[in-house]
Every structure is written in C-alpha cells, then in structure tokens.
Simulated assay, not measured.
Amino acid sequence: MKEQGYKFDLVFTSILSRSIQTAWLVLEAMGQEWVPVVKSWRLNERHYGSLIGLNRAEMALQHGEEKVKLWRRSYDITPPPIDESHPYFLEIYNDRRYTTCDVAKENLPRAESLKEVLDRLLPYWDSTVVPEIKNGRTVLVSAHGNSCRALLKHLEGISDVDIASVTLPTGIPVLLELDENLKPVKPRQLLGDQAKIQAAIKKVEEQGKAKQTAT
C-alpha cells in the first residue's frame, strides 16, 4: 500500500486486539500513525458460538468436515450457540470493552451466521463509514475474515451461494474502489505478490480439513 502511494484519512477497526494491532502495523509501515482510528464491536469477527476455542481441524474431527464446512462457509446457517457452561463464556461476556458498545451485554450474540454478521455490521457501515466515503475520504477498514467477507457480499452484490467460495487470506490488503453510489468501479484487488496470495488462500481453505493420524 505504501509503494502504491495510498494515503488514509480515517481507519475503522473492531474492538478485538488483532484488528487494532493490524491497523497500528499498517499505519506505522506507511508513516501515517497520526491518522485517526475509530473502533466498533460491529466490525468484530463472527461469533462461532460453542465452537469458540476449537481450531478448524478440531472442529472437523469432532463434528465432521461437511458439517463444519456448512457452518463456516454457508451464508445463513448458525453454529450451535455458546452457553454458560462453555469455558470461555465468562471471559467473553464479562469483558469490559463491551461496556461501551451500542448494545446491552445481554443482547450480544451467542452465535452468528455470516448473514447475522452482516445484519449487525450494516447499521454501522451506513451511519458511520459511508458518510466519510461520500465526503471524499479514503478509509482503511481493519477487520476480520468474516466481517470483511460480509461487507464484500453487500458491496459487490455477491449471492448467498457464491459467498461460500470467497476466501480472504489473513494479512492481505483488499482494495475496493467505490463510485458515488458506493458501487465498485472495478473488481476487487488483493494487493501483493500474487503467487504468495494464492498460496495463502490455499492455506486458509485447507485449515478446515481434519488431520488423519495413522495407527
């Protein structure tokens, strides 16, 4: 992004540490540490419910690869919700960063489909991010795989079926240029070495496969 001369006016992140730290690293690398950063839980990663704490291979071993693929990639299928017996329940719902959210703690999701991610993201996008873009500002959104996929689905008009095949590898900038009606003026670009990008996409896609152990 620095090599291509991008200059940001505003940065939007989730309230999760990896999103915020990614924004810091980007701004530092580009010499734009002074650019304002705005945080919102509505850009958070998807809530995986009772699957939280399991990596993709562990999910596949416990539930089967097909069911996990359905939970992970389908647009409107929600995984099993988290409940009070889950080892991460108190850590999540007693986290003080949620005391400043525009939603009561008791109304925070217990699990989300990609559709539900888009449902909670869109009000923030429309009310906070869109006005900045319409005012001519160049913005950076530092979010997560699923919140970014949900946003791309909305902006690019990707169908409920086709969104399952959209993979965004970690740490690869996605460039999307929008017209005055917030419609893409050309296909999205993944910035960087294209061979490395394809290898990163393949790595993400293979993470959902259960590892087999010979006996």
Rank of each mutant, 00 (worst) to 15 (best):
198 Q>G: 06
153 K>W: 06
198 Q>I: 06
59 M>R: 08
6 Y>G: 01
206 E>K: 09
88 Y>L: 09
59 M>D: 01
20 I>E: 10
37 V>N: 02
129 V>C: 02
208 G>A: 03
51 L>A: 02
153 K>M: 10
195 A>Y: 11
96 R>F: 03
20 I>K: 10
46 R>S: 07
165 S>L: 08
73 R>H: 13
139 V>S: 02
144 H>P: 07
73 R>V: 04
165 S>E: 13
170 T>K: 07
114 L>K: 01
107 N>D: 15
82 I>E: 00
144 H>V: 14
45 E>H: 12
108 L>R: 13
172 I>V: 15
85 S>K: 13
151 L>D: 03
157 G>Q: 12
165 S>V: 08
67 K>G: 00
111 A>L: 04
114 L>H: 01
42 R>N: 02
171 G>N: 04
152 L>T: 03
190 L>N: 09
157 G>H: 05
187 P>N: 11
90 L>S: 10
178 L>P: 07
179 D>F: 07
14 S>H: 04
14 S>M: 11
35 V>T: 15
35 V>I: 13
107 N>R: 05
62 Q>K: 14
61 L>N: 10
139 V>W: 02
34 W>L: 05
154 H>A: 06
11 V>C: 07
102 D>A: 04
125 W>V: 03
198 Q>S: 11
68 V>R: 00
210 A>K: 00
138 T>P: 05
33 E>R: 14
109 P>A: 06
99 T>K: 07
162 D>N: 15
20 I>A: 03
150 A>V: 02
10 L>S: 03
189 Q>H: 10
60 A>T: 02
43 L>P: 00
23 A>F: 05
213 T>D: 14
142 S>G: 09
144 H>C: 11
46 R>K: 15
174 V>Q: 06
